[in-house]
Nucleic acid binder design. Structure first.
Lengths: 247, 247
DNA sequence: CGTTCGCTTGATACCGCTCAAACTGCGTGG
DNA sequence: CCACGCAGTTTGAGCGGTATCAAGCGAACG
C-alpha cells in the first residue's frame, strides 16, 4: 500500500522502508462518502484523524442564518486534525465536496508513530506546519486581497498543493468546486465569483471548464495574486512546477 | 521562576514539579523590544521559538503597496511557532505592538521536552491546537462576519484569552491596540473601526478608553458576535469568566 | 420530460473605503 | 510653563466594490 498521504509526507522528508510499513499499518479501513454529505458533523466527539485518500472535502462553519464559511479545503493526502483527540467537541463540520474516500488513524497511533520514529515525527510536524501556513495565507487573502486577487491566489495555491501529490500537470489541475463553494472559501457571493472568473478569463490568465482549471499565464497570475510559493515549501525538495525564483 | 507560559500550559493540563523545573530551565535569557519594532523580521532564518512574557505582539504580512494584515495576535504566554526550526525562511514578520519581553526556546529543546515528558507533550499539543482554532475563527470572521460582528467577536476572544493567563478580570481587560491595529486585524480601515466602535459603545455593549476594554454586556456582545467560547477551551478546566452554558 | 442545480447576466442597494480636515492628548524642548 | 509636533481619534462627503434580488438558460438526471 502506497497511498497519497505517503506521497505527501515523502515530499517533506524521505521515509525509510520500515517507516513506510509502520505507516501503512496505521490506516484503518477506508470509507466512502457521497458528495454534499458530512464526514464529521459539527459537535461530534472526535476520536481519530481522517486522511483524505480521494476526492475533495472541506472544513466549514455554518451560521443559523445560512451564511457558510469554508475554513479549509482538504485535498487528497491531507490529514484532518491529527490532534482532534485532544478536543472534547469540535465546533465546525467536515463535509465532502465531491465523492470522497477517507481512511482514519487513531490519535493513539499517531502518537506512537511519532515516538517510534523521529523521521515520521518530523514528517507529521512539517505537514502540520504547512497546513498552518496555508491557513495564515487565507487570513491575509480574506483580510486584504480584492476579489480578483483572492481567486488568483487560491488557484495558485491549489495548483501547487495538487502538484505536490502528483495530481496536477505543469499548467492545469482539477477544480471540482462549484462557484458557490468558491464563494464560501473566499468570503464572497457566487454572483461575484462568476463575474470575477469572467474577468480572469478575459484577461487570458486562466481558462476554466468542465471542472478543470488551466493556468494560461502562471507568472501573470502569481503577480496579480502577490503569490509567494515559498510558504508551501516546508519541504527541502522541489515541488513547484514553475521552478524556483519565479515570483 | 513561574512565568506566564507555565500558567497557560497549566490551564491545559496539570504539570508535575519535575516538568515545571524542566520547562523553567528551557528558557533562554529574555530580551526586550520597543513598541513598533520587529522581533523577527520577514525572511529571517528561524532558529528558535519565541515566548511572549509581557506585552502584545503580532504576526503580520505587509504588501509593497502598504496594505498590512495582522495574521495573529500574540499575547503573554503565547508561543510563537514551536516548529519554526523546520522552515528555511519565514514569509511574514513578528512585530511588537507594545513594549514586549520575550524569551526563547530552541526547537531542539522543545523536541527534547516533548520526548522526555508525555504531559509536556500534551500541554504543547493543546496549546498548538488552541492556536489553530483561533486562526480558524479568524478565517470565519474575515470571511462571513460584518464589521460589527468582527469587532465584537475579537473582544470576546481577547477577553477570554487574557483571562486564561490571569490578565483580565470578570468584565474588563487591557486593550493596548490602536484603531489602525484593530483595522489590520479585522481587514477593515481605521476610519470604519472608529465608527463601529462608536456603535458598540452607543448600544451599551462596551466602553473603551485609556487602553482598557470594559465589557458592559457580555451576553449581548457574544450573541451579536455569534461567539462560541468552547473553541478556546481545549482545556478540561474552566477558564471562561462567564462560566459554562452562557452562549 | 419535468425538475433541479449550477451558471450567467442585469438592475439596484449598501457596506465599507477613500480623501480630507479638525480635534485631542501627550511628550519634548525652548 | 508654554509652544510645538506628532500620533491617534473623530467626523464629514462622496465613491466604489461587492451584495442583493431577480430572471433566464443549459445540462444533468430521475
Amino acid at each position: 500500500m502506497h497511498n497519497v498521504l505517503m506521497r505527501k509526507l515523502e515530499s517533506f522528508i524521505r521515509l525509510s522502508d520500515a517507516d513506510e510499513i509502520r505507516l501503512a499499518n496505521a490506516f484503518r479501513p477506508s470509507r466512502r462518502f457521497a458528495a454534499r454529505t458530512d464526514i464529521v458533523p459539527e459537535g461530534d466527539d472526535p476520536s481519530a484523524a481522517h486522511v483524505i485518500l480521494d476526492g475533495w472535502a472541506c472544513r466549514y462553519k455554518q451560521f443559523t442564518d445560512g451564511r457558510r464559511q469554508i475554513i479549509s479545503l482538504l485535498l487528497p493526502g491531507d490529514i484532518c486534525d491529527p490532534h482532534v483527540f485532544l478536543l472534547s467537541r469540535i465546533g465546525h463540520a467536515i463535509g465532502a465536496l465531491t465523492p470522497v474516500t477517507v481512511s482514519r488513524i487513531t490519535g493513539e497511533t499517531i502518537r506512537d508513530l511519532k515516538f517510534s520514529s523521529p523521521t515520521l515525527q518530523e514528517a507529521f510536524d512539517r505537514e502540520a506546519l504547512a497546513t498552518v501556513e496555508i491557513q495564515r495565507e487565507w487570513t491575509v487573502s480574506l483580510g486584504r486581497r480584492s476579489a480578483t486577487e483572492r481567486l488568483a491566489h487560491l488557484f495558485c495555491e491549489l495548483h501547487l498543493r495538487l502538484a505536490a501529490v502528483g495530481l496536477a500537470d505543469a499548467s492545469s489541475c482539477p477544480l471540482p468546486l462549484t462557484q458557490t463553494d468558491l464563494a464560501d472559501v473566499l468570503g464572497l457571493t457566487s454572483v461575484h465569483i462568476n463575474r470575477t472568473l469572467r474577468d480572469l478569463r478575459n484577461t487570458g490568465l486562466i481558462t476554466l471548464s468542465g471542472k478543470r482549471l488551466v493556468i494560461e499565464d502562471a507568472q501573470g497570475l502569481r503577480q496579480l495574486a502577490h503569490f509567494d510559493p515559498t510558504y508551501l515549501q516546508v519541504a527541502s525538495g522541489e515541488t513547484d512546477p514553475l521552478g524556483p525564483l519565479h515570483h
